[in-house]
Design a protein around this nucleic acid. Structure first.
Lengths: 139, 139
DNA sequence: GTGTTTGCAAAGTGTTTGCAATTTA
DNA sequence: TAAATTGCAAACACTTTGCAAACAC
């Protein structure tokens, strides 16, 4: 009961420190919601809702700012599958997505389950930033 | 000079007829802008601008409606690469896209230049509607 | 004529911004 | 205390909607 005290924010804290972001109450709470569980795909609106449900007072604007800061810091990856809504993925490793067109849900496809072969050259003077494979499913 | 008269709207007309859409002045004009030239990637705003430049009186709402009707009829394909803007692609054959993150421009990659192998199974009770590969480039 | 399509303006969505008040180091 | 961060409300960009007028068949 001495050194092994429960430290609920340690992971979040470390992540923020590593990213050079001040660990404010809001950022810590959002980081905890995002990273303490499994891999997640959240929209800003969703995360804001979760924060409020958890009695974390945070404005939607701050949620947007925070999601973008986390993305810029490489802690999140932004996924676009649907005009008019951004999803943020806590899994930043190489992987792709199933998109359920009816429900709007996203699901990871592990990177090694899809191989893109015969990639074209990047056009003159450009470099490839990322290759997104989106498998759109129905039913 | 008899049967081979120039018929500027025939392609557009035929396409509309085939889709069961009444060939109204607006739809004909938009179809002409979309399909008379090469393969194109347009946003609604863009197409509306082109229509106005060509002295075609059409409202933005009608451009949206028309793009969606054409998409439903399989004449266009909607591409989402950028939250908050839809692009419509006149190339409905199997192919993929380069997306220039700086300019927001889209460019086709012929279907046979990319091979996706080792595709995962569609999840239980779903079927694959489409696989989109987006190669995001910078520079 | 009759049902479809259009235009307009208004409403809706999701996101960003400007700035004063607050918080962090 | 100085600089970063936050909240709010307003602004924004894009898209959809409702309904009367115009149009195609």
């Amino acid at each position: 009961m001495t050194a092994v005290t429960h430290r609920p924010f340690s992971q979040a804290l470390d992540r923020l420190r590593a990213a050079g972001l001040r660990p404010t109450r809001q950022r810590l709470a959002l980081a905890k919601l995002l990273f303490d569980c499994c891999d997640r795909h959240v929209s800003a609106e969703q995360l804001h809702g979760e924060a409020l449900s958890s009695n974390i007072r945070v404005s939607l604007a701050t949620v947007y700012n925070t999601l973008h800061q986390f993305t810029a810091a490489g802690m999140l990856r932004e996924i676009v599958v649907d005009a008019g809504r951004s999803y943020f993925d806590t899994n930043t490793t190489d992987h792709h997505h199933f998109f359920y067109e009816q429900s709007g849900r996203l699901e990871d496809i592990p990177g090694d389950m899809v191989s893109v072969t015969r990639m074209p050259q990047a056009p003159q003077g450009t470099s490839i930033r990322r290759v997104d494979v989106i498998v759109r499913v129905m039913g």
